[in-house]
Nucleic acid binder design. Structure first.
Lengths: 207, 207
DNA sequence: GTCTATAAGAAGATAGAC
DNA sequence: GTCTATCTTCTTATAGAC
């Protein structure tokens, strides 16, 4: 790992814990194992480091989006076939999403950093909403629409259905960001949530 | 309004926008219309101002909790009577909760401040979770249990049911904190969400 | 690319006049 | 209770030696 990368890594770690303003260039340098002035050979300044993190993260996000969409298309194709096991499919999908978002080191730190900095300017606010609200909702919406068309789930408003699927996962994820000691509890709730979600949205079998 | 109160007001406004570390004592003083050293006649220091905001907000929260519980008990008693209009009752309750949380000036600023500072220490993390996750969930859970017992809603896991009711409201609330321009859209989604929530959780009338 | 030395400014906080 | 003046420390950033 190059020094430039190590600086970004140390910076995102500190920013995710204390926020941009509470972290000094000296602290970043110390975490890397160099002195503050050496850092200016790699970046123009503190803001430049922050921008580099943003740029790097957006690059990773785009790559990850494409991969997820591929998985999604596969999962969606599966949905048509395995109508019976749709609950397990949803549970696995949800848990996988949850664990990935929670345990991927860079993703996790970046999310915390954005959480702290989201009110700082409009671009950061938009970025947060895009990555953690709009994109997940539109992705889940598309997936759930396929399950509806396949006749597995009830015909309900798609967007709201996606909200019912994603919002509980989101609130539990942000809970874990804040209190990692409650991760096990949260993971169980995610599982329970999805099971109950598929139960209540299932097409009723006449009793 | 006393100078002490005006300092707290200016401080919470600035903290909710930029976070504790990005705000200087001088900026707070300027917002109040005094010079920085004058501020030290009212508070021991910057941290003391922050603590006072915290204390004040917890006082208000406890008062508000008691009031809400009273409303809740009333609403719950109503629930047994008006089984037919339970959907409207839920919609009104949800929208009222949403609008109160979103438009009460101090509540709103304090929530943003806590959002920014939640990772700073364990007490702030616990406080955030209590006020915006655990307490609302346990309150909603109690209310929904009464609707279940009254035979209006299906018998499902209470905690998850509360999560399905509250999580969408929570995610839309945090969206509005970040992007107030999307408030109208969010409010419509809240309404749609609750209507769909009561539809899918309703005891099925045999077709 | 790393270091030491250092500039230039802002920060939190105190002393003491009024 | 407010002010000016001041202290000390920390901050970002640069200059220049190695």
């Amino acid at each position: 790992m190059s020094t430039k990368e190590r600086i970004l890594d140390a910076a995102v770690t500190l920013f995710s814990l204390k926020g941009y303003d509470a972290v000094s260039v000296g602290q970043i340098a110390e975490a890397v194992g160099i002195k503050a002035p050496s850092l200016y050979k790699h970046f123009k300044g503190k803001q430049d480091i922050f921008n580099a993190i943003l740029k790097e993260m957006q690059k990773r996000y785009e790559i990850q989006s494409k991969e997820l969409q591929m998985d999604g298309n596969n999962a969606a194709e599966d949905a048509g076939v395995f109508t019976a096991v749709s609950e397990d499919m949803l549970v696995n999908m949800g848990k996988r999403l949850f664990i990935y978002f929670l345990h991927d080191d860079y993703v996790c730190k970046f999310r915390k950093m954005l959480t702290i900095e989201q009110f700082h300017n409009k671009e950061l606010a938009s970025l947060f909403t895009k990555q953690y609200v709009d994109d997940p909702l539109s992705y889940q919406s598309a997936m759930l629409a396929l399950l509806t068309q396949a006749g597995v789930l009830r015909q309900e408003e798609r967007k709201i259905m996606a909200l019912h699927f994603y919002a509980p996962i989101y609130i539990l994820l942000t809970l874990c960001d804040r209190q990692p000691e409650r991760e096990e509890e949260a993971l169980q709730l995610v599982e329970q949530h999805i099971k109950q979600f598929s139960r209540i949205y299932q097409k009723e079998v006449r009793s």
